[in-house]
């Protein structure tokens, strides 16, 4: 038995569970809001083409439209100005092996419950590593905040001075990218950066540092509370869009039974 047949057996026996980390593509799901004079992120939309009727007697189908960055989605390096010249930086160019790999989950849910602007810092990462070991190279790191359980206006949490939601500090992202060599970083919020991320130096540090270094982002994830701190496998292939800067996608995790 090779590793793959072992895994297949474990999957069929239910020893490995498949966890869906994806929100449903829904017209009313929040998207990031930019100042109105900027171009905006298109909401998910669906128009019926036929439904077993005079428009097509035996079939039902829809035309759908959205942004590359609508719903649970993947950010490619070319999404950010810092990553514009990264080799293979668009979703259609990224090597397929990047889309499946090990994942570490840093639980910030307690802190985020206390503080809407909760920050993931190097200290929190150090603490996590003291318990779970050093974050291995080329892994996905997900920041669990349980933010995905918020509904309505609480999700973007928009105030007069913009959105308030948790995210990483520039130092934390630098540590993950430059010292741990992670493959990508994912969050439950609408972006990989904190709601107030524009006020860091550099602004939007997760986007800036991750993509400038050819790393990937995942956002609007859900169900991170079902993942163990280590030992799960993330599957996240985006659509193969020519020169795409990102893509809505289905994100799955393989989790050893009873591990979460």
């Amino acid at each position: 038995m090779n590793a793959l047949t072992q895994m297949a057996t474990a999957l069929t026996r239910g020893e490995i569970e498949v966890v869906d980390l994806t929100h449903t593509l829904d017209p009313d799901f929040p998207v990031i809001i930019l100042p109105p004079e900027f171009g905006q992120c298109a909401r998910f939309r669906m128009e019926e083409v036929s439904a077993y009727d005079h428009r097509g007697p035996a079939w039902k189908w829809h035309n759908i439209s959205m942004s590359e960055h609508t719903g649970t989605h993947f950010d490619a390096p070319v999404h950010w100005v810092s990553g514009r010249n990264v080799a293979n930086g668009a979703v259609d160019e990224i090597p397929a092996e990047a889309f499946i790999g090990p994942v570490c989950v840093i639980d910030c849910s307690e802190g985020a419950a206390q503080d809407d602007d909760f920050e993931l810092t190097p200290e929190i990462i150090a603490e996590w590593e003291a318990t779970n070991g050093r974050i291995p190279e080329n892994t996905w790191v997900l920041m669990r905040t349980d933010w995905s359980k918020r509904r309505g206006a609480d999700y973007l949490n928009m105030r007069e001075d913009g959105p308030h939601s948790p995210g990483p500090t520039p130092e934390a992202i630098r540590l993950l990218v430059e010292e741990r060599g992670i493959r990508g970083f994912g969050t439950e919020t609408v972006g990989t950066d904190a709601g107030q991320g524009m006020h860091y130096a550099p602004p939007y540090p997760a986007h800036y540092i991750l993509h400038g270094n050819g790393r990937y982002g995942l956002q609007c994830l859900t169900g991170l509370d079902q993942l163990p701190a280590t030992g799960a496998m993330l599957i996240c292939p985006p659509l193969k869009i020519r020169n795409g800067t990102g893509s809505p996608l289905r994100v799955l995790a393989l989790v050893p039974k009873g591990a979460s």
Partner: peptide, 30 residues
Amino acid sequence: ETWRPYPERSALEKMDGVNLMPLDLTDTSS
């Protein structure tokens, strides 16, 4: 997009006889 606050809402909410209903003209299902 009730997930996005807007200033007119508080005035509308206060009016007797006004019923706020979900409606987004760009979303056929709504």
